[in-house]
Structure formats: structure tokens, C-alpha cells
Amino acid sequence: MTDVFLQTRGLTCERDWRVLFSELDLQLRRGQMLQVSGPNGSGKTSLLRLLAGLMQPTEGEILYQGTPLGRQRHELARHSLWIGHAAGIKGLLTPEENLAWLTALQYGASTDAIAQALEAVGLKGFEDVPCHTLSAGQQRRVGLARLHLPQAPALWILDEPFTALDKKAVAQLEGHLAAHCERGGMVIFTTHHELQQRPANFFELELGQQSA
């Protein structure tokens, strides 16, 4: 039981009187990677936001290591990392300042670690420019640089992480996510893109089939 990190029981999500998904049972163990797929508006983002603890489910419950999320919110917050459509990057701040603040919110990171993370996503030389002058793909990379920090938490919840990235960056990110799972981490993400590198424990959840 305890090796199940995150579990949902009878999870139902309703938005504007429309049922997005219902009675969803899901289990995530260490080392697993979950791709949530489905057509636009099928509730992929909503599911991720529910799991990250940003939204309350209409019905059903989310269990964190066997205990309902309500009492475990703090624990989940310490062991998960959420990057949404908007990654919380401030256009007026430099990539370095953005990362320093976002990591301070969770566990803190040294300036060296931040510089290395930025180098890992190919933003070396852009540390000191305001983010609004960067391209969309580069801004995406600033957010994703958090995944390259040494203290990154176990569970990554990523909403469309591949958006705006170039081919090389997509391949690199795929490799990075797979490596994270191989080390015992977990990734939940949404994408419309077909993954080339999959870890052993990959599984896919197709939303939007119940209603169709």
C-alpha cells in the first residue's frame, strides 16, 4: 500500500455543469510515468490541477501515500513540483532571479545550482536578460530549468511541457523525464506529442472517451 505514492478514488470533475471525467481510479507508484492524453477540453489540465492540489474534486478523493490529500497537502507540496501552462515566470525578472524565487518557495537552491540548471536547458549567457525579451521557447526553458536542480522533488506534474520547444530540446527533455523515472521519481504530464523515449514504467491515460 505504501509504495503507491498518489492514488485517486472515484475522482469526478465537473466544470460549468459539464462532466469532464467521472469515477477515475488511478495509481501512481515510484518510478512510473503517466501521460494524460485526450482531445482538447477533455479535462487533462483539470486532472493535473486536481492532483497538484490546486482544485477541489467534485466527487471522489485523492490519496497521498494512503492518506486523503486534505490532511497531507503540506507533505504533497514538499514532494511535488507543478509547472502549468503559465510557469510563474516574471517577464521583468531575469531567468536567474525567477529561478531563485521559484526555488526559494520550495526548498531553496544555491546560485551555482541555478547557473548549472540554466546551462542544462541551454540558456547559458541569458542569465541576466529580462525574461520578456526571450522567445516563447526560451521562457518555457526557464520554467523547465527547475527540473534540473539537484533538490528537485520526487513527483513532477507538468502541463504541456513540450510546448514551444525545438526538436533538440524536446528530445533532451524526454530523456531527462525518463531518467528521472529510472531514478525512482515520478512524472505526470499532458502532451499531444508522441513520446520517443519511454521509461519501463510508462503508461497512458486517455481522457474524453467516456463521454464520446
Binding site: 497538484a52 490546486l54 507540496a77 503559465a86 510557469a87 510563474g88 515566470i89 516574471k90 520550495q106
Partner: peptide, 17 residues
């Protein structure tokens, strides 16, 4: 407003603080 639009508030809500 700007913290809401660029997703900063989400990060605050999911942070352990």
C-alpha cells in the same frame, strides 16, 4: 493580476509555505 496571469499565484498555492 500579473501574478495570476503568469501562473505565480499557482506556485504560491502549491508551495509548502
Amino acid at each position: 493580476r500579473s501574478d495570476f496571469e503568469d501562473g505565480s499565484l499557482e506556485q504560491w498555492v502549491v508551495s509548502p509555505h
